[in-house]
Amino acid sequence: MTYPVWHYDGVTAVRQMADLVIEGDRFRLSDGADSHALADLEPRDTVGGDVVYGLRRRPGWRIGFAGGVPDELARLLPRQYRYGRIIDRYGLWPSLAVFALLAAVAVVVFLRTPALVARAVPPSVERQLGDLMVGDLGGRTCNGGDGPAALAALVQRIDADDAAIDVRVVNLPVVNAVTLPGGRIVIFDGLLRAAKSPDELAGVLGHEIGHVKNRDVMESLLRQMGLSVLLGGLDGNVGGYTHALLASSYSRSAESRADDFAIGMLRAATVSPLPTAGFFRRLGGKEGKDGVAQALSYLASHPVSSGRAKAFAESAKGTYRPALTPEQWRALRGICPSDKDVEKPEFRF
């Protein structure tokens, strides 16, 4: 059988007219002697009604059937591509269903993986990562007077004998405390100013220790890295929004777990949870006159809901002792002002 085709040889640009001669599972063109396997033909895009084929390993080689391929020949030739090889084989709708299922599984696995992986990362590795990211915070940590001893006493009181926890005070006027990778907790001087009693500080500290114990920092780090990898393939904007949304919804649940942890620690240490509840109420704006703007930093990273203060308040029962003696509390509050060597708070985050 012969069929008329137009032809580019991929070497020159001149279009030739020829006949396609079928010989079993091979073919040749009437203007040449070369014979090729029909299986080596590759479907190309249909152009203006002409069905076009290329040839494997011959870039630019084309034959075109003006007005389409006769049915009896079409059966011998490879099928046209549409969506891609795999999708064409199974059809669009079955492929869509399978992909959607796989995507759902992938999302679920992906959302659960950071928590599992974070707990599998050895604390020593996390500590090294922390060193890489933040180091020893340079000369900004405060060590004035009896402050360090008072701080150590507070940590000892609520979390006895845990070598993995390293609490520092940094000379910045920010009402906040953060947990960094490797069990490092940083209390900002602004928080010491804003706290009315050592018990309030103990609650906040307990919360941060909860983050360390739950490996929340590592989990959040892995999640953020994973999200940027996964969403990198999508359009930049969509990725950014989704990213923020997922990251924040995660940190809420981690926050309430850290709160539960802090409540347990306060109870074990017989420190009253009521001052901490009061502290959250103050930040929440119920007594908004003192330093609402200052408190914004803590609110931004630790969303304060009325439920949080309530959880602390409701856990109160029995008798309590103050977390620190008045002398220790005075020394702790003076840890930065009495430190002559500390860098002045000119640094901005």
């Binding site: 891609g84 992909f99 959607a100 995507a103 992938a106 996964l230 393939g233």
Partner: peptide, 10 residues
């Protein structure tokens, strides 16, 4: 297809 493949099909 791009949605159900989480962007891979793009």
């Amino acid at each position: 297809l791009t949605i159900v493949t989480l962007g891979l099909y793009s």
